[in-house]
């Protein structure tokens, strides 16, 4: 479930963000509580809380007193534009690095992408 590359709290934040981007948590919907997430993923509640707070600070989640955590309006669009910005660093650059090692040219890569796109 969790890879070891990044801090656990960040992975919890990403997990919730993934759910929002994929539409599993709609805007204004409630997300699982810190204790539920902690119990389910077997992670210390303080770590989970920190991950949730990352999203609160980004305005993706907000707290309703006595009720729990909810997805903020506009959260999905905000996450989408953020991820689009990261797409280059996270995917394109590593792709090009590997391609160079394999001796693939730019047109080789274009052809591969076209094939995948049409399959």
């Amino acid at each position: 479930m969790f890879d070891d590359g990044r801090p656990l709290f960040q992975q919890i934040a990403d997990l919730l963000a993934d759910g929002i981007v994929a539409g599993r948590y709609a805007e204004d919907a409630q997300v699982p509580s810190t204790n539920e997430l902690a119990g389910f993923y077997r992670i210390n509640p303080a770590t989970v809380g920190k991950g949730v707070n990352v999203l609160v600070e980004q305005g993706v989640l907000h707290k309703r007193r006595g009720l729990g955590m909810f997805v903020s309006p506009g959260a999905r669009d905000r996450l989408l534009s953020e991820r689009t910005e990261r797409f280059r660093d996270d995917y394109v650059i590593p792709l090009l690095r590997e391609a160079r090692q394999l001796g693939l040219t730019a047109s080789d890569i274009h052809r591969l992408i076209d094939q995948e796109d049409h399959s």
């Binding site: 810190t34 204790n35 902690a38 119990g39 077997r42 992670i43 210390n44 509640p45």
Partner: peptide, 11 residues
């Protein structure tokens, strides 16, 4: 044990 610890600790 891990589940019981986390659950009871959370509460």
């Amino acid at each position: 044990f891990y589940d019981a610890l986390l659950q009871d600790y959370a509460e």
